[in-house]
């Protein structure tokens, strides 16, 4: 299987889909990359030539922020919020939703699996 940008191994799929396996590349970016490099988005990723592969890799690294550097960029942004003692940083620290969502119910994506609290009334019972 071909490798692009480090460890990413897109498989036997259309090129525009295979590219979305790279962190930081979605459908929109993938389609754009194909256009910029004059590659057929419908071609199978395994049919890429060596030259096309190197082109893809250098292009992705140069024009877009992907994989490690993107992860680092995001982590740095969060670290900044924490360091300046802002409300958003505090929410990140506590692992709670950052953008003002409710936490009485839901927010499971941030809080993780439910922890049952004894004696707590159910949402239905609260009215």
């Amino acid at each position: 299987m071909p490798r692009v940008v480090g460890v990413d191994i897109p498989n036997n799929k259309r090129l525009d889909i295979a590219l979305t396996y790279v962190y930081g590349v979605g459908r929109a970016t993938a389609t754009k990359v194909c256009e910029e490099l004059r590659l057929d988005p419908a071609m199978q990723a395994r049919d890429l030539s060596e030259e096309q592969l190197t082109n893809l890799a250098t292009h992705l690294e140069k024009v877009y922020v992907v994989e490690g550097s993107l992860r680092r960029q995001i982590a740095a942004a969060i670290a900044r919020l924490r360091d300046i003692g802002s409300y958003r940083g505090l929410r990140h620290r506590r692992g709670l939703p950052v953008r003002g969502q409710r936490t009485r119910t839901n927010a499971r994506g941030r809080k993780g699996p439910k922890k049952t609290v004894a004696g707590k009334k159910s949402v239905k019972g609260m009215k």
Binding site: I84, S86, Y87, R88, L90, V117
Partner: peptide
Amino acid sequence: ITEDMVGHKLGEFAATRSFRGH
């Protein structure tokens, strides 16, 4: 106020709630 705080609002740095856990 430090340089990193530019662009944020003053209220972001003064929490209005004091929940310390159950």
